[in-house]
Design a protein around this nucleic acid. Sequence first.
RNA 1: GGAGAGGUGGCAGAGUGGUUGAAUGCAACGGUCUUGAAAACCGUCGUACGUGCAAGCGUACCGAGAGUUCGAAUCUCUCCCUCUCCGCCA
Length: 428
Amino acid sequence: MLDIKFIRENPKIVKQGILNKNEKDTVDEILEADRERRKLLVTVEELKAKRNKVSQEVGRLKKAGENADDIVAEMKQVSEDIKQLDEQLRSVDEKLKELLLWVPNLPHSSVPVGKVGKDETSNVEVKQWLPEGFLFENEEPILDHIELGKKFNILDFERGAKISGSGFPVYIGKGARLERALINFMLDYHLDKHGYTEIIPPLLVNRDSMRGTGQLPKMQDDMYHVEKDDLYAIPTAEVPITNMHRSEVLSESELPINYTGYTPCFRREAGSYGKESKGFLRVHQFNKVEMVKFVKPETSYDELNNLVSDVEDILHELKIPYRVLELCTGDLSFAAAKCYDIETWSPAEKKWLEASSCSNFENFQARRANIRYRKDEDKKLDFIHTLNGSGLATSRLMVSILENYQTPEGKVIVPKVLQSYTGFNIIG
RNA sequence: GGAGAGGUGGCAGAGUGGUUGAAUGCAACGGUCUUGAAAACCGUCGUACGUGCAAGCGUACCGAGAGUUCGAAUCUCUCCCUCUCCGCCA
């Protein structure tokens, strides 16, 4: 959520940011509601001040045994007016809040501006890393991850569709073990090498949590919702973990807070059928190790770099070719001010696949979720900055691992760092 | 699912419907004392919004919402949450 004062004072900047993000510009509507709200507020507060004052006077008069009927009658009318104005105010207030919830975060000034219209072509590749001996062109025929999954009986998309519907993969035997190895390896690495604290959060969360991180109201249709209890299945561990500190005041000395956690993630992906939807490329349930940071505002861009570097470490260990993209304004998510995507290479698709997204939300989520810290220097409260990054999503990563680690003999080698976790070195 | 108890400031804990934003204690912060520290003593010590160049002023907030009243932390109703016990269950 943006600060209404900031919008009031910088409408042009806000409008430009919204335009660059291809979101709906409601700034004028907001300013109008804000003006109306303040006008009503001044009027009603003056009346309330009067009521408070006179009511005290009534008390004094009655105590002294004097008659107060006249001013009581007058105050009765004032109270009636207050009641009406309060009702108007409440309605304007609600409208304003709703409008504000739909305003996206503004892109950081360093973010490349995309062309008008939803556009990812202005994303900038800032880095590419390839393991030793890697070639983009393979001499031997390459099987894609679906064929490999079938061949070794380690992945079963058809049975997943039978059990739940398409997009719910089943992992079998060595596939399941490899998946679990990957999760454990990544978690252990972040804990031991990067110093994160592990969280196992709830997978169903309430409305306030979804609003806090910015999924609601915009992404309503993309989420699984348990109607009976009004709970949402998490689309990412970002939601429960960031909301751990919702409505809390943290002390400066405990920042930065670095959490990591593994959870399944659930996404309805409404309306996305047909587009890159085969196998693991787009699923309704997948596994992800997530990293979440709560930091002081002045450190958040350094922390964003740390986040990307923590993801890269994992890929170096796994020896998976990847590239880092700096997203342009048109490709930035609703809540992000700046974001790097990390994409891993799929030799069968001959494509880069998004396996991680590292974002700085600045104080956008902190405002929505009311997460603040008390500064040492002046003891004042301020919003913290939140960041998160996938470290990483196993589905896309699994595609890259299976496809990149194929041997000419038609087997798949388990990446070295995972072997102690899997207990086997080869599939097939 | 059934029964009961409770929700007040960072915490603990008062609060006959009328200078109560809220006693008191602890914690925290500043100071005096001390070679230093502790103790003791003195002082400060909520947040948000609005308004003003500013000092300031105003309003709201005692789980949430509605009601009674000139006036509600205090009375009434509804809801939410937490805890305890019983039942069911992994």
